[in-house]
Design a protein around this nucleic acid. Structure first.
Length: 191
DNA sequence: GCGTCGATGGCA
DNA sequence: GCCATCGACGCG
């Protein structure tokens, strides 16, 4: 497996969210290496997207979202969970892709079926906000041998976003969503 | 199996 | 006073 091409991050968020399904997320920290296959993502396509944090404008929190693509946008939600996003699109366009779920590789036994669970297990914290994903600490690998089966659905937890709440901007690898022991969310069924 | 609810903190 | 969540409960 090779590191993903840095230029991929410059793609529009909806396309990037689709294209990194099946890719492998790697985090090297404290002498350990965590690896998992990305199986669920969501695109936040710009300031006009009412579900996107960038729709609030350029603030202290959203600053990195308006920066160059290929950097991590990490924020705190509900006082206890961190969400891991990849800034995408042209610099300044305020787009990002949220990594929602992954499947652990090798002998790593852990439940990564949710954005909060994923960051906890990967030890991704607020300190990672703004880090460059083209370095060798936190990055993506392309896996040419894996062919995901990708389905588009509505995004989770954005009911406040008016006409944007029903946009088909969530991408799921259906090969993996069926993994046993994983609860099927109600929002996942009606599509 | 499914709905409801509380924890908990940064930010506007 | 919101939240791009999670897990614990209670129900029957």
């Amino acid at each position: 497996m090779r590191k993903i091409s840095p230029s991929i991050y410059g793609r529009e968020a909806a396309r990037l969210a689709h294209d990194i399904i099946g890719a492998v997320l790697v985090h090297r920290i404290c002498g350990k290496e965590y690896r998992a296959r990305i199986v669920e993502t969501e695109a936040y396509v710009g300031p006009h997207d009412l579900a996107s944090h960038s729709s609030k404008g350029r603030t202290k929190r959203t600053e990195v979202m308006f920066g160059p693509a290929g950097h991590a946008y990490v924020y705190l939600i509900y006082g206890m969970y961190t969400m891991f996003n990849i800034v995408s699109g042209p610099a300044g366009s305020g787009q990002a892709v949220l990594i929602r779920a992954a499947e652990p590789l090798h002998d790593w036994k852990v439940d990564l079926s949710g954005p909060g669970k994923l960051t906890r297990a990967f030890k991704i914290t607020l300190l990672h906000n703004g880090v460059d994903l083209t370095t060798d600490k936190l990055f993506l690998l392309r896996d040419p041998d894996y062919r995901p089966q990708i389905k588009r659905t509505r995004r989770i937890g954005v009911d406040y976003a008016k006409e944007w709440k029903d946009a088909l901007l969530r991408f799921v690898d259906t090969k993996s969503a069926a993994v046993s022991g994983h609860r099927i969310k109600k929002t996942e069924r009606n599509s």
